[in-house]
Amino acid sequence: MLAEMISYIIENSQDFTTALGEHLELTLIALGISIAFGLLLGIIGSRFRSLRNFLLNVGKIGRTIPSLAVLALSLPLLGIGKPPTLLALTLIGTLPILINTIIGLEQVDKDTKEAAVGMGMKDLQILRQLELPIALPVIMAGIRTAAVVIVAGATLAGFIGGGGLGDLILNGHQLGRDHVMLAGAIPATLLSFYFEEAFGRLETWATPKGLTDETRQSGGLIGLLLAIAVMPLIFGTLLPWSITNTTGEAPTVLTGIHPEYRGIGLPILVLGLVATLWPRRGEKGNSWPITLVTWGAAIAALLWFVVGLFSKIDALETSGLVLLLASVVSITAITSLELVLSYRNHRANPRRIKELQTTL
């Protein structure tokens, strides 16, 4: 079954990449709007007590409604296609951000706010410089939840003509081909895991150091940048590597997972994912021997690309190759910086210095 799924993705790589791009487009647009509305309504709810309970109740009740039902309710308003999909996904994503924003702002200590008022700070200054930084961990948790809910809910967009990976699932169901369904379902599941990891790193990086759980794995800014680099890495593998035009025939498009280039594209993808998604601890990262492994994976991916460029690839003329090269170079640069910082932290470790002094 998995072999059939992989063969289908290879043979229909253009359709798969288009569906994946539509899925991400719906997710990111809906998430951006959800963050704006969720924060705005949450701040308003924290300021006006008369609206607080109403907004919280709407948020709690709204989260119990199935995602497919929300999509169906948007059909009479906007018809079929992407507009009702964006409306439904925005509503689904706004609710957890709204609830967490209100709760996070209310958890700020009243004595702290009174002290800020006594120092002459205005309400907007208190909100921006005191309340939002303290409430940020709770708010970011809401954004993280919203991102995962939206990327999962976008799969249902195929039911109302919204596009995305849901189209593959529906097509597979209608044709009775399980491998086509899996070609949409498995990438959608992996996207949910990816958004969970990426926004988890963003949450820890954006949270003030005094409020951060030091035991949590994130990798700080470096971990966040590496998580961002995953998308160009994947799309660089799936977008066209070569386009052959034959007179009177449709152009032949080959991607990084096509049998002709699979020996180059797949090892680069796997090595890049090891370098970017390896769990990282706190702002200081992993111990430098482990960081050496992730840096080695990035270097191996870059060298593999260079070897492939001279052996099978004629020129960097297609979007897939350019994007893949940019992502691999970026990952190598970031992991190199991570290796240097990790080694410096290792050298400056007080325990190590004490052990050296003892041996001397």
Rank of each mutant, 00 (worst) to 15 (best):
S242D: 15
T244Y: 09
T244A: 10
T244M: 04
N245C: 00
N245G: 00
N245H: 15
N245V: 15
T246M: 10
G248P: 03
G248W: 07
G248M: 05
E249L: 14
E249V: 01
A250H: 09
P251K: 07
T252L: 14
T252W: 00
V253R: 06
V253Y: 13
V253G: 02
L254Q: 12
L254R: 13
T255D: 01
T255I: 02
G256V: 03
I257Q: 04
P259E: 08
E260R: 13
E260T: 14
Y261A: 05
Y261H: 12
Y261Q: 07
R262K: 13
G263E: 10
I264Q: 03
G265C: 06
L266W: 12
L266E: 12
L266Q: 10
P267G: 08
P267H: 09
P267N: 09
I268D: 02
I268Q: 03
I268S: 02
I268N: 02
L269R: 05
L269D: 02
L269Q: 06
V270L: 15
L271N: 03
G272V: 02
G272W: 02
V274S: 03
V274A: 09
V274C: 08
A275Q: 04
A275S: 14
T276Y: 04
T276F: 04
L277V: 10
L277R: 11
L277N: 05
L277E: 04
R280N: 06
R280Q: 15
R281A: 11
R281F: 11
E283F: 14
K284I: 09
K284H: 13
G285V: 02
N286P: 03
S287E: 11
S287T: 09
I290P: 00
I290C: 00
T291M: 11
T291H: 11
V293F: 15
A297I: 01
A298T: 05
A298E: 05
I299S: 12
A300C: 08
A300T: 14
A301L: 04
L302Y: 10
L302E: 06
L302P: 01
L302T: 10
L302S: 08
W304I: 01
W304G: 15
W304F: 11
F305P: 01
F305W: 13
F305L: 15
F305K: 01
V306H: 06
V306Y: 13
G308V: 03
S311C: 00
S311M: 13
K312N: 12
K312C: 00
K312Q: 15
K312H: 13
I313D: 03
I313G: 04
D314Q: 14
D314N: 14
L316H: 07
L316P: 03
T318D: 09
T318H: 11
T318F: 01
G320V: 02
L321T: 12
